[in-house]
């Protein structure tokens, strides 16, 4: 049980994880069409290697992400092999894949925490706005902003742990 050898199992895995896999594929490939290709290839590879998946060892989600990671690398190589578009043009900065996966997970975790917490973390930390200014804008005491930062960070940790994060 648990292996991904049946076509039906693939369907269940798809409905559980395709959204996340696609989100990360778009994030790392920067192209929705390529991301579709990557997700399709991921499930095909997962199905072909389905008897090697062991739920005792790791989660299905982690396994699918590991496959997608390889698919993204292969697609990236294929793209790099194509001729360069503009001569003398600036190569876009390429984020290393491991870092892209971490970054995407943090962004995804930020989307999953409560709106109040997300708002405050975005404004005070990412946009570096003073607590007093954000407090005035939201019409709450400054202390509330501080406690939302604290509980927001804790919620973020829980959301990341649900995605397999551990420190």
């Amino acid at each position: 049980m648990g292996a991904l050898t049946r076509e039906r199992d693939v369907r269940e895995a798809y409905s559980a994880h395709s959204g996340e896999l696609f989100g990360f594929a778009v994030r790392s490939l920067g192209d929705a069409g390529l991301a579709e290709e990557a997700v399709q290839e991921t499930f095909l590879r997962a199905w072909k290697a389905g008897d090697r998946f062991d739920p005792q060892i790791g989660s299905l989600r982690t396994w699918l992400f590991a496959i997608l990671r390889n698919v993204v690398i292969d697609l990236g190589r294929a793209r790099a092999a194509r001729p360069r578009v503009a001569e003398g043009g600036v190569e876009p900065a390429v984020e290393p894949l491991e870092q892209a996966l971490l970054a995407w997970q943090v962004e995804e975790a930020m989307r999953r925490i409560g709106e109040d917490h997300r708002r405050v973390l975005l404004e005070t930390h990412f946009r570096a706005r003073p607590y007093a200014e954000v407090a005035a804008e939201l019409g709450v005491p400054e202390g509330t902003i501080k406690s939302r930062v604290y509980y927001g960070l804790r919620a973020l940790r829980v959301a990341l742990e649900e995605m397999g994060y551990e420190d």
Partner: peptide, 22 residues
Amino acid sequence: LMALADPDRIEAPAASPPADLG
């Protein structure tokens, strides 16, 4: 880890796969 994240991406609507991909 927060240093890695991009605030604009956090606020962008999450991409979802086309309905017929499955």
